[in-house]
Nucleic acid binder design. Structure first.
Lengths: 148, 148
DNA sequence: TTAAACCCTAGAGTTAGGTCCAAAGTCAAC
DNA sequence: GTTGACTTTGGACCTAACTCTAGGGTTTAA
């Protein structure tokens, strides 16, 4: 009852990247298929699938392949003295993840302001560009000035 | 009472990028200084400063320079029939911004799981790698299994 | 038993986003 | 009136992350 293994083409289709990309990740130590067939075909396991899932996900949120490599390499062992290092590294990543989420939310608001203000909004052409929308936001700070 | 203009070095220091980068953005149509001195020096206005701020912010959250170029080009005019287009474009960006925020939060949780579980946590070496942490998360779905 | 569809490797090429350099002009201060 | 810190241009160079090509082996369905 060994699990079903995927060949490179199947995995590629499944996760929507090219076969070249998967080979590229392998060359750079991010994803080594757990097995090869007699003919030398790469055979990917379920775990490999999860791994590539993480890689792509991390990539989408802005980690570089190098960072992802490091993340995947993180491992805390029982007798750990590297614990501190791991925690430091992870916490740093957490920090700038937080910062970027904040920034994204800010841009999200800006885009929303733009989208709302422009099409059939009450004010016809007041907030008309990204930068005006940004300004509109900035001006309405903690205490929204326009309402005073 | 014309506003204070910045030369390229001052702006560069202010926003923490190289002068080359600013010139690069100019060459690619993202940021043209509002003025040049007689000698041909670039002079950046307050508005230019805001613009570069937006560019860098958008870049940090994962927009490409091309996308940023398009975002900056967005403009809704009074007699607008392009309104639909703008809205479509912006809403699409909003969508994948949302998706990426979700993904970031997921990774954030994973990292937190890792950080918590590893250093002095109750369970010593159970969740020890990113992928195990991911799994731990997945297993505790809507109804956290471990607690049942 | 052969054609179509798959896989392999090695290495060259591409794109985005800078970064570096050389040769030369400008400006403030001493 | 020259030194030193600034600026200009054009073009070469760089890194990350693919993407493509050539030349060849494998598997499977007809």
């Amino acid at each position: 009852m060994s699990e079903k293994k995927l060949r490179i083409g199947e995995l590629a289709r499944l996760v929507q990247v090219s076969q070249d990309t998967l080979r590229f990740y392998e060359k750079h130590g991010l994803l080594t298929p757990s097995l090869r067939s007699q003919a030398g075909y790469r055979l990917y396991s379920q775990a490999d699938l999860e791994r590539v899932g993480f890689i792509l996900s991390a990539k989408r949120v802005g980690f570089t392949l190098n960072e992802i490599h490091d993340l995947l390499g993180l491992e805390v062992t029982k007798d750990d003295k590297s614990c501190e290092d791991v925690k430091r590294f992870v916490d740093e990543k957490l920090d700038n993840l937080n910062q970027r989420i904040g920034e994204m939310q800010r841009i999200q608001k800006t885009l929303k302001t733009l989208s709302d203000a422009c099409c059939g909004g009450a004010e016809p052409a007041t907030h008309c560009t990204i930068l005006e929308a940004l300004n509109a936001q900035a001006e309405s700070g903690p205490i929204p000035r326009r309402l005073l």
